[in-house]
């Protein structure tokens, strides 16, 4: 009897979390005790803002673009559907790193060229200077690349969400005289979004991790600062410990929030 209760108690404990928090506390403890760790912490922390900005801005923009693409994918209009499927398949078939290089070194010059062509009269008059690739900072290019890449994943999530809504809901809305757009906006999308909320939140965790890719463009995020610091001090072990610690703090806590959200939604819909 007593043994059973002990077993149940231990089964309720998320041991992986205990281990993670333990390791986290040990590393923080070591860091505070150790002068060189304190310095590394301070250095890498300077990249925290850049990492978060890149992640949050790219995520917000890709939510918006992904919603539009997802709606187009579920549209009744064939050209819209085809165009959005084309984009999604193209982008999902590329490694994120390649998208990043492509936008940074092909997309940015191309964008400058397009802007120059569009604004040619103004530039000719000397009202504004001609655009050059270097007008777009690497951070901007990185955000653009992550946005374009993640929009494709998020579009697929929205599409799945739209398809998960019972067809009877659409019929009922139509039978009440609602137009297609009213039905989508008032009946389908609210339910679809709710159904895919956990999946959307998981994409935020994923984009935080993928934001480390921007370091290849020299953007000063956590990873880039760590890379440069380690290379100049040869303290690879300590530096990458700190870098990993920063990412884990973000991702593990966010994943736990997503799980709590999921549990809440499940409870609400089974009530």
């Amino acid at each position: 009897m007593k043994k059973n209760r002990a077993a149940a108690f231990s089964a309720g404990i998320p041991w992986w979390l205990v281990l993670l928090v333990g390791l986290g506390s040990i590393s923080v403890g070591t860091a505070l005790a150790d002068e060189s760790y304190r310095v590394i912490f301070g250095a890498v922390a300077r990249g925290f803002g850049v990492t978060m900005t890149v992640a949050v801005v790219s995520y917000a923009a890709s939510l918006f673009l992904g919603l539009l693409l997802g709606l187009a994918r579920a549209s009744r209009l064939r050209p819209l559907r085809e165009a959005s499927t084309f984009y999604i398949e193209l982008v999902r078939g590329l490694p994120m790193l390649v998208i990043l290089y492509y936008i940074a070194f092909v997309g940015a010059p191309a964008l400058a060229g397009v802007l120059n062509a569009l604004l040619a009269p103004l530039i000719g008059m000397g009202a504004i200077p001609a655009f050059q690739s270097r007008n777009f900072s690497f951070a901007t290019r990185a955000v653009l690349a992550l946005t374009l890449g993640y929009a494709a994943f998020i579009a697929e999530i929205f599409r799945a969400g739209i398809e998960s809504v019972d067809k009877g809901q659409v019929e009922a809305a139509h039978a009440l005289g609602m137009s297609h757009s009213q039905t989508m906006l008032r009946v389908v999308l609210p339910q679809a979004t709710r159904n895919v909320l956990p999946a959307l939140a998981n994409e935020f965790v994923a984009i935080i991790k993928d934001s480390a890719l921007v370091s290849v463009l020299g953007v000063q995020d956590i990873t880039q600062i760590g890379k440069v610091y380690a290379a100049s001090t040869f303290k690879f072990f300590e530096t990458y410990n700190v870098v990993a610690f920063f990412y884990l703090c973000l991702t593990v806590s966010l994943s736990m929030l997503v799980r709590a959200l999921e549990r809440r939604l499940n409870k609400a819909s089974s009530r």
Binding site: Q169, A172, A175, G177, V187, Q191, R194
Partner: peptide, 21 residues
């Protein structure tokens, strides 16, 4: 005029189809 038609004739479904949200 679909809107007019559907205002003229309302419908009740087997599975109710109330808006769940």
């Amino acid at each position: 005029d679909l809107r007019r038609i559907r205002e003229d004739a309302g419908m009740v479904f087997q599975s109710f189809n109330l808006f769940a949200h």
